[in-house]
Amino acid sequence: MDVIGNGFLAGHLSTIAQGHPGVVVAAAGVSAAQHTSAESFRRETALLNDLIRRCSRSGERLVFFSTASSGLYTQPGQPGTEDGPVRPTTPYGQHKYALEQELAVSEIDYLTLRLGHVVGPDQPPHQLLPALTAQVRSGRVRIFPGSRRDLIDVTDVVTIIDALLGTGASRTTVNVASGCAVPIERIVRHIERRLGLTAQWVDGTPAVTQEISTAKLRRLVPRAERMGFGPDYYRRVLDKYLSPVGAAGSDHRPLPVTPL
């Protein structure tokens, strides 16, 4: 496996790189849902086009990371599916969906993975958990009422990708998430309890969130049924990576807490 990039996901995927020859992973794209930089979008588009040309010549399979965030799935009432309609509402969601479509009209072997909110060590500070943790530590958190977030441990993401590549799934899109979106208030409250801190909550713009369907994931990767996904899964993920104040001897490195 040739992992393109040196960031959060790229680092974790390096652990399975030897097991998948003939696979190219585009792990150097835009990773911030709040991102609106046209230049960053252009760079990722250029990278993907270069990799499509490469894979067209070499016959390699290309793995592309899209999003299963509320920027893409915006129709509440039923879980968002890979084959169902999507109406991206943010520049980030529109950008990722446009790249999905470029892959779909290409002739290469590809796998598009729509990721939930991945959590783990060495995350950049703009991503969900480091950002929320920094806000809690600062004493002030902005809450968008109605928003829900589907958290998934990066180790589970790597396990799923490893399994998906082993199935030979081709020219398809798969949601990679826990399937249990959690109200943002519960996530922030659990972070506060875990850190032993209380922050002031400031309301932002009310949000609309669509659940994420994992039916296709569970069909392709039966092991996902045994990975502990469920209503309490998010608590285990937070507890794994957020050390309580004064804790010592933790088995895992805490998330970085670089201030926003």
Rank of each mutant, 00 (worst) to 15 (best):
V105A: 13
A26W: 00
T112K: 09
R223N: 13
V141N: 07
T112L: 13
N175R: 10
P206A: 01
K96S: 11
Q101K: 15
G146Q: 08
V157Y: 07
R226S: 15
A248Y: 11
L242Y: 02
V245M: 13
I191Y: 02
S56Y: 00
L220P: 02
P244Q: 03
T74L: 04
I4N: 00
P206W: 02
A199R: 00
S250C: 14
V174H: 04
R236N: 15
V86T: 14
L113W: 05
S40N: 14
V174C: 05
R194K: 09
R226C: 11
G179H: 08
E100V: 09
L115M: 09
V208N: 09
R137P: 04
S147R: 14
P125I: 07
E44S: 07
I16G: 04
R236Y: 14
R137V: 06
A177L: 07
G29H: 03
E192F: 08
S147P: 06
P222W: 03
E102H: 11
R61N: 03
S70C: 12
G19Q: 14
A247W: 07
L115Y: 05
R140P: 10
V182A: 11
I184F: 14
Q127C: 09
T167K: 04
H12Y: 11
P244I: 02
F8W: 01
P76G: 04
G11E: 01
E44T: 00
L51R: 00
P183C: 07
Q127G: 05
V25A: 00
R171N: 01
L151R: 04
G11I: 00
E107I: 05
F229W: 06
D251I: 12
S66Q: 11
R194I: 06
L47N: 05
F65V: 05
G146H: 06
R219C: 15
T173H: 10
A224C: 08
T81L: 10
G11H: 01
T15N: 07
V245S: 14
R219W: 13
D232C: 12
D153C: 04
P130T: 01
P231R: 11
E82M: 10
L197F: 07
P88H: 13
P85H: 08
T45M: 13
A104C: 09
P183E: 08
N175M: 09
I191N: 04
V245K: 14
R148I: 09
G5V: 07
R140Y: 08
D232R: 15
Q34F: 14
N49E: 06
G93H: 10
D83N: 14
A28H: 07
G5H: 03
A177C: 07
L51W: 02
N175F: 10
F229K: 09
T198S: 15
V136G: 02
V257Q: 11
L51F: 03
E39L: 15
L242T: 09
V208Q: 15
V119G: 08
S250H: 10
P256A: 09
A177S: 08
Y233L: 11
N6H: 12
G196W: 02
V154P: 04
P130R: 02
A98H: 13
R148D: 09
A104T: 11
V118R: 05
